[in-house]
Amino acid sequence: MSASTLHDGRTGWYASFRAGLPDRLDGLCLLGLGAFMAALARSRLYWNFLNPKFSHLTLTAGALLCLAALPPLLRPRPGRETPGRLARQTFLALFLALAVLAWRDAALESAPSGSGAFDPAPHADAAAAPNADVPVDLNPVVGNVPYVRLNLAELYIMVDKGRKDYPAHFALRAEVMRAPRLGEHGYVLLRRVAVVCCLADSLDLRFLTRGQAGAEVDTLKDGDWVEVYGRLEALKGADAGLPKLAPRGEGPGLAITNPKFRIQAEHVERIKGADFPYLFEFREKEPFAW
């Protein structure tokens, strides 16, 4: 092979590679996003972003994006890098960087306290995860009083609809939120974030909660997780204006404190915390999603 042939061959390969580069970059963008979606859909952290019922949809879309990446990657067509193309490639790369950062944050937040572990390992049962901690007894009896286990969002939805057939005595798990102006009146807030589709349309639902003799509401700290056995009571008189004193959002969800009812806690147990702090399923009759 002569030197000139070698030179021509290299020039031809380079020109061909360069002409196909914009197409290949498009392919890489599609592959990157598709791989990210597929990996997240199989991850135990999926619920930090979307309702797990959509994990199969995300996985399918990710796989389809990977397939769509093949033609431009493997058989690129010659074309120029235009400003528009460069813009979309840049935006997608920036989005992927942001999404990886969000994934990392979710992993760190989900890790055991103080471990600092980042373990976004695939979870074999990502879609079923939120229901994994369903208790055996949905109708516990405490102090001879039968309670119905439900989740805070289910209670909120029933009350919001004006229904009267919510359980008279119920048990629910929630995170405690303290606010000084409510604490002066003997109240704490119980909150859960309800996710319908994704984090962007999540709701941070809250009830004012007050204890009675034997209940430990006064000693609860901000961020404690509790299982509260109690009943609903209408907010009356001076207490009717208290929901307006509730602090606004500190998380991703739109914060709403129930304006008409409070929870009267009859028995409170501190718990380790829900495996999944967000709620994804809401039923309006027994058995509730818990």
Partner: peptide
């Protein structure tokens, strides 16, 4: 912010 942007795009 990062989580909301990601969730909107992924959804």
């Amino acid at each position: 912010f990062a989580a909301i942007v990601s969730s909107i795009v992924l959804e």
